[in-house]
Design a protein around this nucleic acid. Sequence first.
RNA 1: GGCCAUAUGGAGAAGCGGCUUAACUCAUAUCCCUUUCACGGAUACAUUCUCGGGUUCGAAUCCCGAUAUGGUCACCA
Length: 555
Amino acid sequence: MVSDKEIAELIFPDVKETIEDLEKRYPERNLPLGAEVTRFAPSPTGFLHTGSLFTSLICYKVAKQTNGIFYVRLEDTDTKREIEGSGKQLLEQLKLFDVYPSEGYFGDTQKGNYAPYVQSERADIYRICIKHLLEIGRAYPCFCSQAYLDEIRSKQEKAKIIPGYYGQFAKCRFLTNDERAERIRNGEPFVIRFKSNGNHLRKIKVHDLVHGDFEIAQNDQDIVIYKSDGLPTYHFAHAVDDHFMRTTTVIRGEEWISSLPIHLELFETLGFKAPNYAHLPVIMKLDENGHKRKLSKRLDSEAAVSYFLKDGYPGEALIMYLMTIANSNFEEWIFANKFEHMENFTFSFNKMSLEGALFDMGKLNFFAREILSKKNKEEILQLAKSYSKEYNNDLYNLISRDEQYFKDIMNIEREKENPRKDYEKFGNLYDLISFFYDDLFDEILKNKLEFNEKFDKNLISLMLVECKNKLDLNQDEQGWFANLKAIGVEHKFAGNGKEYKANPEAYVGTISDLAEMLRITLTGKKNSPNLYYVMQVLGKERSDKRMEKVISLLK
RNA sequence: GGCCAUAUGGAGAAGCGGCUUAACUCAUAUCCCUUUCACGGAUACAUUCUCGGGUUCGAAUCCCGAUAUGGUCACCA
C-alpha cells in the first residue's frame, strides 16, 4: 500500500522544505496596531484597466491612512495570455497617477522582505505547500483528459445539475494510491487537485468589508491547484501568497465573491488565517441596448487608463473622479476643501456604494476643468509640455516656439478668483489655441470667415479700419471697451442690446455685432476668450496685421 | 439554470420609522450678468424611492413575495 506521503514524495522528490520553514522565512510583519497590508495583484496581460486603477487607489489609500503597506505582486501564472513588457508598463502608469506601492514588484526591480513578488518566481514556495497538501491527503493527482472534462460538463448541463469536478464526477479522487503511483511512474501527465471536504448544501457565514455579512454555499469542487505547466492556479496562489506576504486585507473586484468559499477552504486546510476581504463594485457602462456591463477593455476606450493619458487628462482628475465613486461623501469633502489636498481625505469601506457605478465622462470632464483652472501658468506649461512630448508632437513644437507666448495664452483670465474653465485636457489644446500663431492663423483664413450676413463687406472693412486706427491697447479693459463702444456708436451701432431693441430702426446693429466682427477677424472664430485679452496677447502689431489681411480679403 | 450580490431622478448619491413638500454634486434647460464663449448668480428638473402585499397612528426606511439588473460556475486571472 502506497501512502499519501509516498505519493507526495514521488511527485516532489526534490522538495525538502516545509510550511514551517516558510513561516520562518516570511514572518509576521512588525507593524503598528491597525496598520493594513494591502496589495494590487495584476496579471501582465495588457494595459492598466480603469477598474484596476480604482482597486489600486483604494488599496493605496487604506494602507496609507493606517500607516500600513501597499505592495504589488505580479500574477503571471497564465503564460499563454501574458503580454511581454506589460507588467512594467502597469507600474509606470500607476506612477503617473501617484498610486504607487512601497514594496513588491516595480517593473525592473523587486523590493521587500517577502520577495519574490512575481508568481512565476515562487514555484518552490507553491510546491512546498502542495506537497504538504498531498501529504495530509487533501490534494491528489488528476489524470483526467480535457475530453473527459468536457464530457462530464455536457452531461451535467443536460441533467441540469451543478457542473464541475466534484463528488462522483471527481474520478481521480477515488483512485488508490497504488494506481496513482503506477500512473505517475508511467509518465502520464497530470494536474493536482485540491480535495474538498465541503458540502454545497451547507452554508458558511462570510464577512466582507463592503458587503457586510452574508451566507454562501460551501465549496465542494476539487479545483485544480497545480497546472500541468508546474504553476499554481489563481486560487491556490492567492492563499499561499497572501498568507506569506502577510496581507491583512484583500481588496479586489466583486467578481471574486463567488470563489470566496474556495479560498476560505484553502486557507483553512493549509492552516492559514484568512485575511479580511473587501469586494469592490465594478465600474460599468451602458451598452447600445441600454444594458449595463462591466467596462470592457476590448469594447470601451475608457476602460484603459492609457486612453485618458493619451487624451491629456490631468491624472488627478481621474483619481478624484474615481474617489467620488469609491466614497459618496468625497464630493462634499473635496468641495469643502476647494479641490485641494485630496490625500487628506479618509476613505472608508462603509461609505462605499454597493452597486457598480456607470462611468460618467461628463463628471470626469467637470473635475478635469476644475483642476486645470486652479493651476497657474507655470504648472500648465509643465503639464502641457510633458503631455505633448509624449503624445502630441504638433502641440509640443507649438509650445517650444515660445514658451512665454504659450504661457500668456494660457494665462488669459486665469489668475483671478474665478478663473476661466476652458480646458479639461491637453488633447484638444492645439486646435483651441492654434489661431494665436500667425502661420496657423493663415491656414484658418483659407476658409471663409463667418461674418454675420446682415452686414455688407464695405461696412465690415470700414469698421475694421476704424478699430485699427482708433483702438488703443494701452488702456485697461474698461477703457478699451469704452473706446470700442465709442467707435461703434459713431457708426450707428447701439451701445447695448436694450437700446437696440427699443428702437431697432435707428441702428445698424449692436456693440455685440461690432465685437463679433473684430473677434472673427482676429481669431477666425465666433467664440474665443475675452477679446481684450486676446488682443493683449497678440499685441498691437500682430492685431493690426490681421485686420489688414482680412480687410484685403474682403475686397 | 444554480448560487451570490444589488435596486432612490439622465448620472453619482444622501437618507437607516415622524425633522423629507427626498439633501448634495454632475448633466440638461431657462433666466440674470455680459463684447462671444467660459466664469459667476438664480430657477426648473423623482408628488415619490422597481412592483405587489403586510406591520404601524405614520414606511424610501421594518417584514413577506415577485421582478429586474450585475457577477460567477476553466489546467484565466
